[in-house]
Design a protein around this nucleic acid. Structure first.
Lengths: 238, 238
DNA sequence: GAGTGGTCTAGACCACGGG
DNA sequence: CCGTGGTCTAGACCACTCG
């Protein structure tokens, strides 16, 4: 996403228009809530085609700076909602990306009927059998994250036969069971006795938690809770 | 981002192409790492202009499904990195969006020289004076989040004169000091005695923390730590 | 060097939704 | 109703980068 650049690294084309419009918003030339000129007018002003202006304004709208509506026109967003985006990599790559060595241990693996609560959350048929897995991820031989997961084998064909000691479930699913959508939630929880034992920390320690559920169309693939060892930080730029 | 829809809600145009390509990726017709046909070929196959195919493929590349490089062509991404995006709204709107009433209390406000650590993190000139603020956000009269912040008035002109009891610093800055970039980090921390007192929880309770620093070009605007009352969950869809 | 994606243009049609 | 943004087309030039 570098974009065309001029002699001194200054963007050209639609990116130049985007930057100029953004500069005017920042300079309060077009204050929050105010309408900005129509695409056609801007196109003439910039000496560009309307499609080029459209490209620039669309980028600003996607970034939250503009509100665009047919007929109503384009306005500077009242509450410049900023979005933070996080990549969700395979845990192994996340660990390796921090310069550490990753390993994992499959602590438990069993097939059992889904509990009533699980069946409801995942819209599973009554009495469905799920694969329950517990994995400990290590970074440089120290506990990194404790992963508790259930998988619906119907939506992840082959998972029963996979050697999940060689490749972590996490990675197997990423490669073999692409999902269409899902939900993710971040929170802070106190370590229970079991988590404390797995992660080698004191009971009650503050742990960063990620809960994630993924679907392939109407079928649930997996539901997982990740508890990270104390001190874990998830960061990004905005 | 609704898109043109056909008779039964099926996307048309570039979105139809995007969905079809995505379906083929999911169906392993084009497995991870494999090249997909050139834009020109796809345009002919779909009976569309190349620009339309380009729009579809660009959307898939932005979403992480495809890797595109000039000359090398377009390939299915090897590690389908998924991104989670979170909106960062004004706290008041976040609270109200959950159906509660928001209020805030300015607990402390003082101007003081930046500490050495702050000056280094924020690249402030030696001896710079910052505005230090402490705010408690309430939802339905119960503690919601405790906000500790420093602001560099030079980058937020007018903040000294603002009545921060009427409008929270958070909101004032969003409206009056747009930032160009910044960093954000999520973590879990144990409540100290002060935080426990502010948030009305037990010392040592697991709290969800957000640390954020924002800049206007080369100038730092503000650095803030938000500690949320126990049980806070940040969720999103992917 | 040459192939591929990135972008621009000029013109056109159309869906949406404010008034 | 009808203005505005959303999208499509056909053709063109160009930047990047692989071989």
């Amino acid at each position: 996403m570098s974009g065309r650049q001029g002699p001194r690294g200054r963007p050209q084309g639609w990116q130049a228009i985007r930057d100029d419009v953004l500069a005017r918003i920042r300079a309060r030339e077009w204050p929050p809530g105010a309408p900005i000129p129509h695409e056609a007018d801007l196109a003439e002003a910039y000496g560009a085609a309307r499609a080029t202006v459209n490209r620039a304004l669309r980028a600003l709208a996607e970034a939250g700076w503009l509100d665009r509506r047919r007929k109503a026109g384009t306005r500077v967003a009242l509450n410049p909602v900023r979005r933070a985006t996080f990549d969700i990599p395979v845990i192994r790559l996340e660990v390796e990306g921090r310069g550490m060595t990753h390993a994992h241990r499959l602590l438990a693996r069993c097939e059992r009927p889904a509990t009533a609560a699980e069946a409801e959350r995942l819209a599973l048929p009554a009495g469905a059998t799920v694969l329950a897995l517990e994995t400990l991820h290590l970074a440089d031989d120290r506990p990194w994250a404790w992963e508790c997961r259930i998988v619906w084998p119907k939506a992840a064909p082959g998972v029963r036969e996979a050697d999940l000691t060689a490749i972590s479930v996490n990675e197997w699913l990423v490669r073999n069971a692409p999902f269409s959508h899902g939900s993710i939630a971040f929170s802070a929880v106190a370590a229970g006795h079991e988590a404390a034992g797995r992660l080698g920390c004191a009971p009650g320690a503050a742990l960063f938690a990620i809960d994630r559920t993924t679907w392939a169309g109407p079928d649930p693939i997996t539901e997982v809770r990740l508890l990270f060892a104390p001190g874990h930080v998830l960061s990004s730029t905005i």
